[in-house]
Design a protein around this nucleic acid. Structure first.
Length: 884
RNA sequence: GCGAGAGUGGCGGAACGGUAGACGCAGCCGACUCAAAAUCGGCCGACGCAAGUCGUGUGGGUUCGAAUCCCUCCUCUCGCACCA
């Protein structure tokens, strides 16, 4: 079938046939246009072409305004895989969208008086065109932004379904409150316990909020980690620890005298075996008993207020100096009713975990020990480490949390730790004051945000009927656009009319919920929406059944826990509501490293952009304009504050997208942090030009219709072997995400072709032209996923009229040529390398050992010694163990 | 503080428990050039004339053999639930 002239793939360089350099400025937009016109990367919601599916997804970007190198790296990794899988015969879904709700838009509105919607969509437009210049093989027809009602309206539907299914709950919880700005602060807006704008000390405040009951799925979320074999081990470990299954005991401590209505304190512990080592009981500052004490004791109230100024961040609370307040109350020991212990309020006890109260056993818990030392509380060891003597075992500055034998522990004496745990629980149950309990560290997911730029929670509060879901016919609940950002707090809450609504039940006046959803909700199901982005339900069942799960998900390690866990929960909740049939959203996960850059400071100590710095031939750094000396700082993650950023758009303008992509892939393994360097980019660019020259030269010498020769010279055969070995190696490297290895092998093939290019001797030239063409065409296909524009250009040069490379299949290696002809065997004497021998692969042991012993240097080392043992690892190594 | 990772030439890195340093960057030497750039070729862990010795953050261990497995310590990175 002939194509219309305007669509026929044509080398962009054909107009200037004589040019020797690759003109990426013409070629890259040209091929991007051709791919677009051919719909190379578009797939239907429900394909019926019989090909296997492959869903490649990179974490979608927040539209901050410009793409950064982290994005380029992320989407390049995904694009290599998407293009590779397409060539391997898969029908590939590779979409792109925008995680478009969130705080920065609201901050921009307050600072620059621009509406969040306008700010967001302008950013999206800018970033979309930047991404398109990178040449990613994305089905852009599927693009959406989470801030569009056509996305968040469906999310509201899911929320209502979850509510009906019992996955949503309303309860009170603590937030960071800025008493000057009268607003809720995110943890990152609390700096050293103060509001980032007002500078006022923050307070913890209790608000009624919506929660998603992720804890319902805790056992399943933990267990299913075992099946995620294509996830990095460390992510699975981190999630498992985060979910935090623990077995222990819940028990009640009786107060010696009741405080108001409270006469006992409940405690969860994983160490009931250490109860005899108890030294104190500690309450979280938010504990109800602490509040009762504070009501009559101003010092307690002051201490609690002090603790609450730390904000809600666990990291801050746990790193703060351990402090406490002795309430004067005492509790009885559960096993020794005559003994009583003080009740403290402690800043490191978390209300969210367990019961918000702990018993302290300083000898066997480091935190308790530090607390006990600070306040002079007794430290009694009850677990004796193996091999220690009870009379000499003392606790210094280190608590002992290992195994051992119980001492000082009444009826548990002599038991090991595990047996003692069982014995303690049995005794608590016998006394009727406690029981065995399984506890999870995972907490329910608080999704209420007191902010404007998010998905409105579809709930109505009626003074008569209480909490009433918005009827589905009234969805979506749209965000009003006429909001003010010059007042503190949530703009939705002081909108003059938006909240006012008739109660769907009684018809009486009611108010809309003014909280919006956490933006993590938006990103917890977008991968499902991409399967059918225009469906008038959250997902189209046939589309998600076809495409999901995502076969390969790629993003930063910083999302190892929260985003990935929330998505895993959402998938299960959607399954329960009949939207999906799968349990796990992402069967493969790859976590990339950061992009870093050297940082620079000028003479005045201010941070400088890399563009402002010039490197002199002697290696010293000076300011490009002023000539003042510049000092190089650490190599660290690119950030605006350190100004160590490189703008992808500027790189694409100067070197082209393929150069940026190639450098990113070549520099180092993708899971590790990479350092962006100008020298590295230039090296990548030189290689691209070199490949172009090779292709140009071979296209001129070796016609495309060359018949396959009967015989090949040794040199030609060597080149063919390299070609076919490279196919195997590059294929394996891509499958393993070893893109830097794939790049190295492609370099080797290019070197081999260049070497063949230098052959002028006629005897050596038999079949060489054919072999050279085979090699460069193969190289073109192997490099295509990584540098798609140049590859397309080379393909057009080498195989004019043969259609688009983007639609061509992956090369197949001929097994006979990919096998090595000889192997090098290392010969060691006593584990030290003394020589090497060359043998055909599979040579038998006796023959190899004889050759090894005969190797001159080895023979010299063996002279006068007895060979005690001969070790032979086939095709690899010989080791002689000798004695004098 | 708690949890999880990482560390190999001047630099990025390669290496099923089996020749440490593939490939690239930088550097040095040479070819081409009036010259420079570009390009092409060669050299390139340290010490040593050599044989060889040392060498994968530190210190130990397992093994015929350890960058790789185990333990100790150091440094850096990520996460800690309202940044995304």
């Amino acid at each position: 079938m002939d194509q219309p002239a305007s669509e026929r793939p044509v080398s962009a360089a054909s107009a200037a046939e004589e040019q020797l350099t690759y003109d990426f400025r013409t070629a890259e937009p040209h091929w991007q246009r051709v791919w677009e016109e051919h719909g190379c990367f578009a797939v239907p919601d429900v394909p019926h072409d019989g090909r296997p599916k492959y869903y490649v997804l990179e974490m979608f970007p927040y539209p901050s305004g410009k793409i950064h190198m982290g994005h380029v790296r992320n989407y390049t990794l995904g694009d290599v895989l998407a293009r590779y899988k397409r060539a391997r015969g898969f029908t590939v879904l590779h979409p792109m969208g925008w995680d478009a709700f969130g705080l920065p838009a609201e901050n921009a509105a307050r600072e620059r008086n621009i509406h969040p919607k306008q700010w967001t969509f302008e950013n999206i437009a800018a970033m979309r065109s930047e991404l398109k210049r990178m040449g990613f093989s994305i089905d852009w027809r599927r693009e959406f932004a989470t801030c569009e009602p056509s996305y968040y309206g469906h999310q509201q539907k899911l929320f209502l379904d979850f509510l009906r299914a019992g996955f949503v709950e309303r309860r009170e919880s603590w937030v960071n409150w800025d008493p000057v700005d009268n607003t809720v602060l995110a943890n990152e807006q609390v700096i050293d316990g103060r509001g980032w704008r007002s500078g006022a000390p923050v307070e913890r405040r209790k608000l009624a909020q919506w929660f998603l009951r992720i804890t319902k799925f805790a056992p399943e979320l933990l267990k299913a980690l075992d099946e995620l074999v294509r996830w990095p081990e460390r992510v699975r470990v981190m999630q498992a620890k985060w979910i935090g299954y623990s077995e222990g005991a819940r028990l009640r401590f009786a107060l010696t005298k009741p405080e108001g209505s409270i006469s006992e304190v409940e405690v969860f512990t994983t160490r009931p075996d250490t109860l005899f080592g108890m030294s104190f009981l500690a309450l979280a500052p938010e504990h109800p008993l602490a509040a009762l004490v504070a009501a009559r004791d101003p010092n307690a109230a002051a201490f609690i207020a002090e603790c609450q100024r730390l904000g809600t961040s666990e990291a801050v609370i746990e790193t703060a100096e351990k402090r406490g307040y002795d309430t004067g109350l005492r509790v009885r020991h559960p096993f020794l009713p005559d003994q009583t212990f003080p009740v403290w309020i402690a800043n490191f006890v978390l209300m969210e975990y367990g019961t918000g109260a702990i018993f302290g056993c300083p000898a066997h818990d480091q935190r308790d020990l530090e607390f006990a030392r600070a306040y002079g509380l007794p430290v009694l060891p009850v677990v004796l480490p193996p091999g220690k003597d009870a009379s000499e075992f003392v606790i210094g500055t280190e608590a002992y949390d290992g195994p051992g034998t119980m001492i000082n522990s009444g009826f548990m004496n002599g038991l090991d730790v595990e047996a003692a745990k069982r014995a303690a629980i049995a005794e608590l149950e016998r006394l009727g004051i406690g029981k065995k309990e399984i506890n999870w560290r995972l907490r329910d997911w608080g999704v209420s945000r007191q902010r404007y730029w998010g998905c409105p929670i579809p709930i109505i509060h009626c003074p008569q009927c209480g909490v009433v879901p918005v009827p589905e016919k009234d969805l979506p609940v749209l965000l009003p656009e006429d909001v003010r950002f010059d007042l503190p707090g949530n703009p939705l809450a002081h909108h003059p009319s938006w909240q006012d609504v008739a109660c769907p039940h009684c018809g009486g006046p009611a108010k809309r919920e003014t909280d919006t959803l956490d933006t993590f909700v938006d990103s917890s199901w977008y991968f499902a929406r991409f399967c059918s982005p225009h469906a008038n339900t959250p997902v189209d069942r046939a589309a998600v059944d076809f495409w999901l799960p995502v076969d390969q998900y790629i993003g930063g390690i910083e999302h190892a826990i929260l985003h990935l866990l929330y998505s895993r929960f959402f998938t299960r909740a959607m399954r329960a509501c009949g939207y999906l049939k799968i349990d796990e959203p992402f069967t493969g996960l790859f976590t990339q490293g950061m992009v870093t850059h050297e940082s620079y400071r000028g003479a005045d100590g201010r941070w400088l952009y890399p563009d402002e710095v010039e490197r002199k031939p002697d290696g010293s750094l000076v300011h490009r304009q002023t000539g003042e000396p510049v000092t190089a700082g650490r190599v660290e993650a690119m950030s605006k504050s350190k100004r160590n950023t490189v703008d992808p758009d500027a790189i694409v303008a100067r070197y082209g997208a393929d150069t940026a992509r190639w450098f990113i892939l070549a520099d180092n393994p993708p899971e590790r942090d990479m350092e962006w360097t100008e020298a590295g980019v230039q090296g990548a660019h030189r290689f691209i030009q070199r490949l172009f020259r090779l292709a140009k030269s071979i296209a001129a010498q070796c016609p495309p219709d060359l018949a396959k020769p009967q015989t090949f010279s040794k040199e030609a055969l060597n080149l063919r072997r390299t070609t076919h070995r490279t196919i195997v190696a590059v294929t394996q490297a891509i499958e393993d995400f070893g893109f830097n290895i794939a790049v190295a092998r492609i370099h080797e093939l290019a070197n081999a072709i260049a070497e063949a290019e230098r052959i002028r001797n006629v005897d050596e030239a038999a079949g060489l032209n054919w072999a050279k063409r085979e090699a460069i065409e193969t190289l073109t296909r192997l490099a295509a996923p990584m540098m798609p524009h140049l590859a397309e250009e080379m393909h057009a040069l080498l195989c004019p009229g043969a259609g688009l490379l983007a639609e061509k299949e992956w090369p197949e290696a001929e097994a006979a040529l990919a096998q090595p002809v000889t192997v090098t065997i290392a010969v060691q004497v006593m584990g030290r390398l003394r020589g090497t021998i060359e043998v055909p692969p599979g040579t038998d042991r006796a023959e190899v050992l004889a050759a090894a012993e005969a190797e001159p240097n080895v023979a010299r080392q063996l002279a006068g010694k007895q060979i005690v043992k001969r070790i032979y690892v086939p095709d690899r190594i010989v080791n002689f163990v000798v004695s004098d």
